[in-house]
């Protein structure tokens, strides 16, 4: 029983991180209809920036904020300079572009900070709530940050003019343009926010898995799975999908298939959802006009 509770608790923690990654993916998917394969590496790179800032003597929360701002600017620049010229390019060109970004960020992190594994501090106190090693403060913090972030995003989209403009640009670009929304900048904004959310995910996961250039590969896979389970166009769905995938992954890993095959489980989830219920749990069914 204790093992089960422990697995569920750690499943919720990893679920919160998958949820963050999935949120970033959803941001980009909603605003541009693309699946960003570089989301994980972008998050990893931002985490390295935070690490460098902390090493330089900046306090944790200042580094946290600064990293989010830098990541936001970075995402914005990537959209403006790299993806905007390819707006009307075929899907293959875009996929190639994302893979290129993935390779560049991965190797850049290695070139600048080396491929050796580093420790990353947690902002939350050590120790755990129950005293039995069940739920650590870091785990609670991770879940809390994710929930707060989802709340902020929801408020942003629902109650601000900018959020409304972004939704309009995503739903019907030409009408939005006629209403005076600068659609292209809304896409850039989406990219910036996705990068910032990714940075948060990276900084939250780094204390658990340690910082190295390949730390996000597996997590990105689960992020994809989470986004698909929740319905890839739905931020709330992505968060719930994240928790579902996180808990399932831990339970299935512990009781059924063993830890070595966890990644393959993500593959099964992804292909399964795509085949059986492509809209996910909360997504809208896409109808294509021919």
């Amino acid at each position: 029983m204790e093992l089960l509770l422990q697995q569920i608790a750690s499943g919720l923690t990893s679920g919160a991180i998958y949820a963050c990654v999935a949120l970033g993916l959803v941001m980009i998917y909603v605003s541009t209809d693309h699946i960003n394969f570089a989301q994980g590496e972008m998050a990893m790179f931002s985490t390295y920036i935070a690490w460098a800032l902390i090493q330089a003597g900046v306090s944790y929360w200042v580094a946290f904020g600064a990293t989010m701002v830098i990541a936001f600017a970075g995402g914005l620049l990537i959209q403006r300079f790299i993806l905007k010229p390819l707006e009307h390019a075929p899907v293959l060109a875009l996929v190639v572009c994302f893979i290129a970004l993935l390779s560049i960020f991965n190797s850049m992190a290695g070139v600048i900070w080396s491929f050796t594994v580093k420790q990353f501090p947690s902002p939350f106190p050590k120790g755990d709530l129950t005293g039995a090693g069940l739920v650590s403060y870091h785990q609670i913090g991770v879940v809390g940050v994710t929930v707060v972030m989802l709340g902020l995003l929801t408020c942003f989209f629902r109650f601000t003019t900018l959020g409304l403009a972004m939704r309009a640009a995503a739903q019907n670009a030409s009408s939005a343009r006629l209403m005076g929304v600068r659609v292209s900048w809304m896409l850039a904004l989406g990219w910036g926010m996705a990068a910032a959310i990714g940075a948060v995910a990276g900084m939250l996961v780094a204390p658990i898995v340690f910082l190295d250039p390949n730390m996000m590969t597996g997590i990105l896979t689960y992020g994809f799975a989470a986004a698909l389970v929740g319905g890839i166009g739905n931020p709330g769905g992505a968060v719930i999908g994240g928790f579902v995938v996180g808990v399932l992954e831990n339970l299935v890993g512990t009781y059924i298939i063993g830890n070595e095959l966890k990644l393959s489980f993500a593959l099964v989830i992804i292909v399964g959802v795509l085949l059986l219920k492509p809209a996910g749990l909360f997504g809208r069914v896409n109808v294509k006009r021919v």
Binding site: I82, P85, L86, A89, A93, V96, C97, I99, A100, L101, L102, S103, I104, N106, S107, M108, G110, V111, I112, W113, S114, F115
Partner: peptide, 20 residues
């Protein structure tokens, strides 16, 4: 630079350049 440049970097930059 302090560390080696992996061949991934070359791949990535080339992919981007070629797409343009």
């Amino acid at each position: 630079l302090q560390y080696d440049v992996p061949s991934w970097a070359i791949y990535g930059v080339l992919l981007l350049l070629l797409m343009y």
